Simulated assay, not measured.
Amino acid sequence: MNSGHSSLPPRAKNGGVSKKKPPRKKKSGVKSFFKAILIIVLLAVLGVVIYAGSLYFKAENGVLDTGNNTPVPPEKAATVKPITMLILGTDYRPKHQTYLTDVMMVVSMNPETNSATLVSLPRDTNIQLEGYNSNRKLNSFYTTFKSQEKDGGTSAEDEMKTMLGKYLDVDIDYVTVLDFQAFRDVVDALGGVNVNVQYNMCHRDSVDGTDINLKAGPQKLDGKEALDYVRYRKSMNCNPKTKESNDFDRNARQSEVLHSLIDQMKSFGGATKVFKVLDAVDDNMKTDLEKDQLKNMIKAYYDINKDNVKFMPVTGEWRSPFVYINESELAEAKQALKDELAGKHMNEPEETNTDSVSNP
């Protein structure tokens, strides 16, 4: 973004903007801003709101509504207080109606440093945590909590916040859940995403409708292909078979796609498609953010730079059927989240070499 871009709202101590005639509501207007912030956090693309002058105006004038009208005390506003959010990406699809969490990230954001730190955990993580079954993969807990919720228990989202907050030794303020369809639709709304596929990927499964067939090389992927790229694990029903992938490779590909999406959103073409992006996830998201807090977030982070968004994928050792987390990396991730909250944003760590690690 060049310094001559003047459509963004100025930072103001009272958060105010000049009064203008509010734009006419559209069919999905009351939900659009809500979706925007959630996309920003899920994709670690907090910089999406760099284009959101119009969204900012709508938020300030009460045109947009999250459905959660709980007041936010001034001292807890995202404009003055660092916040932490859990991001869950489920594998729910029309042909695969489950709630396994293939994506689990925790992001801490600090308004003073205008920065964020994002920690991701492997889906097959074996959690060693008092009170939780260590014989289960991390990605299965949300499904179990959803079942317990139906029987009158605490909400599955709150249970996940409690568990991962305890695991990462950090208080988690909010949780956002999106399914795979949202990811596909966002990529399509942006006209695709540019990546460099490192090797051929082929996996076909008629049971759940999976049909992955990607060729190596730089290319632009549509929503389905981008999801295939991020999710690919191993070759199945293909001749010849293609190289297997592991949780750590998938986390690296997630990071690649997220960075590419940031660049897409920062282009003029991406900026003009922002409302298509918002509509793309209209029915594929759940969150506990308050309406007022969303307005606070856009005030605090509308100009965040992607260089101030630090990704920290935690890796480990694959011993079937689990990933046993690298304790030193886990300790570094916990400290990074705490440092972010304390205003000590650090440079992004070097990428971990996972060439020697493999799993089904």
Rank of each mutant, 00 (worst) to 15 (best):
T315W: 00
K215C: 01
N135A: 13
L86Q: 13
T113Q: 10
E256D: 14
K31W: 02
V193N: 15
E149L: 05
L330A: 12
K35N: 14
S267W: 05
Q181K: 14
L164F: 07
G153R: 13
Q335W: 12
L129V: 06
E159R: 13
T272N: 11
G217H: 08
S120H: 05
E351Q: 15
K243F: 04
N353F: 01
N196K: 10
N237P: 01
P82F: 02
S28H: 14
Y302L: 02
P10I: 02
N114A: 04
M160V: 02
Y229G: 03
R24N: 13
K27V: 13
Q219M: 12
L214K: 11
P111T: 03
V357P: 07
T210E: 10
V277K: 01
G62M: 01
S32R: 13
Y56H: 11
K166W: 00
L8V: 11
R184W: 01
L190W: 06
N326C: 07
L278Q: 14
E350K: 08
T125M: 05
P22S: 08
P94T: 10
D228I: 01
K25I: 03
T176S: 11
V45S: 15
I83C: 06
G153F: 14
K241D: 10
D185H: 13
N200L: 00
T101Y: 12
K27C: 05
T125L: 07
M201A: 06
N237Q: 09
A78G: 13
F34Q: 09
N61P: 06
H345A: 09
D169K: 11
A116R: 03
D171L: 00
A252K: 10
H203M: 04
T113G: 15
N239K: 06
